[in-house]
Nucleic acid binder design. Structure first.
Lengths: 208, 208, 208, 208
DNA sequence: AATGAATGAGGATTCATTCAT
DNA sequence: AATGAATGAATCCTCATTCAT
C-alpha cells in the first residue's frame, strides 16, 4: 500500500547494507586473503563509504571474522542437501562427498580464505582464523559421526584417523583444483577419495 | 698485522648480505604470506636498510620469488637422503614419505608460503607463485616416476590419479599439522598415507 | 497499577540525558582537553548515541562551553561556604583560601580544563575558552573586592597587582598539585599563599 | 672548490630536515597542544611530506618529545646569561627572574606546550609529558640551589617550600600573560615575584 | 657493495556532523 | 526526546620504491 519510493532504498537500511558489505568482503577476501583485503577495496565494491563499514564492523578483523561466519553458514546450507540417506553405505558416503565437492566448486571462497588464514602464523592471530578453525571443527565432528554411524565396529582411534585423513584429502584436492583450475573434476576426485577412505575404514572395522 | 678477518667483516660481503636478507624474508613470508611481508619488516629482521634489499633484489616480487627458489632447494636437499632403495617397494615408499614428512617438520616455511601463494588469486600473479607451481610440478614428476618404477603395470591414467592423490594427501596432512601443531605426528601420518596410496596403486595394477 | 516509575525510566527524560552527557563530557574534557574530547568518547561514556548529543547541543563547541559553564557553577557552589566572616582579616582570608583549595581538590576538572583552553591559541577560539575567561574574571573581581574590603587603604593599582598575584599563585599551586599528585597538601599551600599575599598587601597598605 | 649546485640543497640533508620539522612542530604544538598538532599540519609548515617526518621520528609521540627536549635546551640557553653574579643577593635574584621572564616572552612555546601536556591526564601518558616534567625538575633544582646559596641559613624544608612557591608563581604569572596578552609586563611581575619570595625566604632564614 | 634520506600512494581508522525516522 | 545509519574529511602511520652519495 505505502508506495516504496526509490529514494528510501538508499537510506538507513542496516541489514541490507551489512549484507552488501559482507558480499563485497567475501569476494575480495576469498581471492586475496586477509592482508590483501583493503577496506578501500571493499568500500569501492559495495558502494558504501569506508566509514560506513566501521558502523557495521568494529574493525577489519571483525569484518573478516564475520565473513568467515557467514560464508560457513552459506556453505553448510549448500552442503546439507536431502537424499543422501538411501542406498548402501558406500553410495551414501560417495553422494555426500559429491555434494561437498559441488559446494566447493560453486562457492570456493569459504575454504580458500579459511585455508589462507589457517596457514598464517602471525603473532597476533586474527579472529577470523579462530572462527574458521572452530567451524572447521564442527564440520569435522560431522564426518566423525558419519563414520561412527556407517562403520559401528570401528574403534574410536580409527574413527579419528579416518576423519583426519578424510579432511586432509578434501583440503588437498581442493588445493589441487585451485591450482589447476576448472579442468579438474573435483566431484569425481571427491567420490574416489570417499570410496578409498570408506574402504580403508571397512578394512579396519572388520579385519579378515 | 691487519688480520683479514676484521676487514672481511667491514668489507661489504654481497653473498653474506643476500643470505641474511633471504633468511629474514623466509621467516616472515613463511609466517605472513606475500602481502604480509613488508620490506621494512625484512629490513628490521636482517639488520640491513631497506635500500640495501633493493640492491640485491629488483623488487618485492623478485625477493619473494628468490625466497621460494632458495627454500625449495633447501627442502629438496633435506628430502633427498640415501638409503631408500632397500627393502620391499612398500618399505621404500614408506621410508620416502617419512623423509618428506621430516623435512616438512624441520622447514615448513617453503610449503606454507607456497600454499598461501597458490591459494591467492590476485589480478597480477606474483612471480613467486609461478615459481612455486613450477618446482611443485618437479616434485610431482618424481612421485609419478616412483609410481611408474614400483608399479610398472599401472596404466598412465592411474599413475596420474595416484600422484594427484598422493600430493593432495600430503598437502592436506601438512595443513592439518600447521593447524594442530606439534602434537601431530606428521611422520606417522605420512607413512600411513604412503601405504594407503601404494596399496591402492597395487590393487589398480593387478586387479584380481 | 502502572507505577509512574517504570515509565519515567523509559520515557525520554531530557534533563536527565543532558546531565549524563555533561557528566561524561566533564570527565573526558577535564582529562584530555578540547581536541582530546571526541563525541564518540563522550557517547561511549554516557551510554547515549552520538546523535543524541547533537539533540542536546548544537555542536562540540557548544558542548564544551556548557561543560565549562556547569562545572564553574558546581565549583562556585563548593567554594561559597559560610563561616568565613569571623576572626581577624588574616584568618578570614586564610579560611577562604582553604575553601578554594578544598574545592579544587574535590573537583579539579573545571580549572584543569579551563587552563588547558586558556593556554591554547588556536585560530578559531573555542567558545569554551571565552566562557572560561569570563567566569574566571568573575572570580577575580571577588578577590579584588575582598582585598578592597579587608585592606581599605590599599591603592587601586596595588589591589590589581595583589589580585593578579593571588590568582597566579593559585593557578601555579594548582598546576603543582596536578603534576605531583595527592601527596601535595593543596590546602596548606593555599593557606600559606593567602598569608603571604595578605601580608604583602598589609605592608603596601601601611608603609612603615 | 666543488661548486654547490642548487639542487643539492633539496637532497639528503638529514640534520637540516630534522631541524625544519622540529621548527614547524614547535610552532604548531606550542599553539595547539598535543592533539591539536597534526602531522599533516607539520608537514605543510616544514615543506616535507608526512612520510619524511616518520623517517626522522618514530611517531607523533616521539616528535613531541623531541620538541620538548629541543625547546627546553633553547630556553635554557636563553635563560643562562652572564652578569647575574654581581650586586646584593636580592639584586641578583631579581636579575635572574627578569632573565627568565624575558626568555618566556621571547620563546613562550616551551612552557605553554609543557603546561598543556602537564595538565592532561590521559591514561597512556605521552612521552613528551614525561620529558617535560623531567626537564622542569632540572630547572627546579637550580632554583633550590640558588636559594641554598643565597640564604644559607634556610632549613631544607623551607628551601623546598620556597622553591615550590617560586615555580608556582612563575607558572601562574606566565598563564596570566598568555591570557591577557602583550599588555602584561611579565618582566616587572617576575621581578616583583622574585623580591616577594626572596624576602619571605629572608624572614624564614633569620627569624627576628 | 651499500645506505641515509626522501617520497607519493595507500593503509586502517576516527572525526564531527547530518538526516530520516 | 531521541537514534540508527550514513558520510566526507581528516587522523596517524606504513607501503614499496628511488636516488644521490
Amino acid at each position: 500500500m505505502t508506495s516504496p519510493n526509490t529514494e528510501r532504498k538508499r537510506r538507513a537500511n542496516g541489514v541490507e547494507s551489512r549484507r552488501r558489505i559482507l558480499d563485497a568482503a567475501v569476494a575480495i577476501a576469498g581471492e586475496r586473503g586477509y592482508e590483501g583485503t583493503s577496506i578501500a577495496a571493499v568500500s569501492a565494491k559495495c558502494g558504501l563509504p569506508a566509514s560506513s563499514i566501521y558502523w557495521h564492523f568494529k574493525d577489519k578483523d571483525d569484518l573478516i571474522a564475520a565473513v568467515i561466519e557467514r560464508s560457513f553458514e552459506t556453505w553448510l546450507a549448500a552442503v546439507e542437501l536431502p537424499g543422501e540417506d538411501a542406498g548402501t553405505p558406500l553410495e551414501r558416503v560417495t553422494a555426500m562427498a559429491a555434494n561437498v565437492a559441488r559446494s566447493l566448486v560453486d562457492t570456493p571462497d569459504f575454504l580458500r580464505l579459511g585455508l589462507m588464514l589457517a596457514l598464517e602464523q602471525r603473532p597476533s592471530e586474527p579472529r577470523g582464523r579462530t572462527v574458521f578453525l572452530q567451524v572447521r571443527d564442527v564440520a569435522r565432528q560431522r564426518i566423525a559421526d558419519i563414520a561412527r554411524t556407517l562403520l559401528p565396529e570401528l574403534a574410536e582411534a580409527d574413527v579419528q584417523t579416518l576423519t583426519t585423513y578424510a579432511v586432509a584429502g578434501a583440503d588437498g584436492l581442493f588445493v589441487h583444483r585451485e591450482i589447476h583450475g576448472e579442468a579438474v573434476d573435483l566431484v569425481a576426485m571427491f567420490e574416489l577419495h570417499a570410496r578409498m577412505v570408506f574402504e580403508a575404514g571397512a578394512r579396519l572395522a572388520s579385519p579378515a
